[in-house]
Nucleic acid binder design. Structure first.
Lengths: 146, 146
DNA sequence: CTGAATGCAAACAATTTGCATTCAT
DNA sequence: ATGAATGCAAATTGTTTGCATTCAG
């Protein structure tokens, strides 16, 4: 789990005004430890601080994303999810069977980015990609039952 | 542009009941020639056939996608877009500067899929991926002005 | 005929916005 | 002080659904 106080310091140094709500929201995200939707962050926050508006959660996560303290990804669940940026770039394997999300090192994609740049002059932004499929367990259970 | 009548034949053979609305919708998508959102298909349809309900467009495109006559992709524009399936799999380069979408052959990704399968036993479904970045023109114009 | 498809309006879910009030700097 | 952030409720947007009516096979 990332240290929220450290991240708040970073945010302040990058010019973000640190309000009590923003601190609460970032701490909640850190506690959730991993990807979390606005909804999930908001309900976590609400447990201790019911006064914090959902729109504030939206605005805060967006600001922190702009500062590159958080990353935002569509994991195919109908809403975007946020995560504290650690080592970048890294990607995600999303299992369409069980919904689990695994990390995938950038090395797997570096080749693609280079090739596309070389062949088309297209500069790929491969910060944070989600790719979908079936994990080993779900393949096995489908082989039997599905 | 794909031939809608041909596709309708395929759809019928695959068991789809062909209504006048479905024919109209598929023809509209073919005329739009490329990726189109439900919204865009619906307003195209409405020009000539104002009676066709938006929900029918949703349901029809979904059915045609299930039959693999269309593919559905999130191109990062806040809604999914549909496209007639031609050669599969193929992917898309989406320019975040000008919004243009280029095709990208599967060869670029085959390697990633294989490696991930080998290393994690995760079977990637790489039907139709969208990756984002900046095309050559937008890189140049940013170099000057942005 | 008969189950499937349609149109419509209402329901939903995720997100955004306008604005008076509050607050960090 | 003062511009930015908040809470709230209302508005937007994309999508889904229930149901009476219509229609393709």
């Amino acid at each position: 789990m990332s240290d929220p106080e450290l991240l708040l310091g970073q945010a302040r140094r990058r010019g973000l005004r640190i309000t009590e709500q923003r601190a609460i929201i970032l701490r909640a995200l850190c506690e959730l430890d991993g990807h979390a939707s606005v909804e999930r962050v908001h309900s976590r926050v609400a447990r201790e601080h019911p006064g914090v508006a959902r729109s504030t959660v939206y605005r805060t996560l967006e600001k922190l994303r702009d500062l590159r303290i958080l990353s935002q990804t569509d994991l195919g669940r109908g809403c975007d999810e946020y995560e504290v940026v650690t080592h970048l770039p890294h990607h995600h394997l999303v299992c369409q069977g069980c919904g689990r999300v695994a990390d995938l090192d950038h090395a797997y994609f570096a080749f693609v980015g280079d090739a596309v740049c070389r062949d088309f002059g297209f500069k790929v932004v491969l910060d944070h990609l989600a790719i979908f499929g079936l994990c080993r367990e779900c393949q096995e259970s489908r082989g039997r039952s599905g």
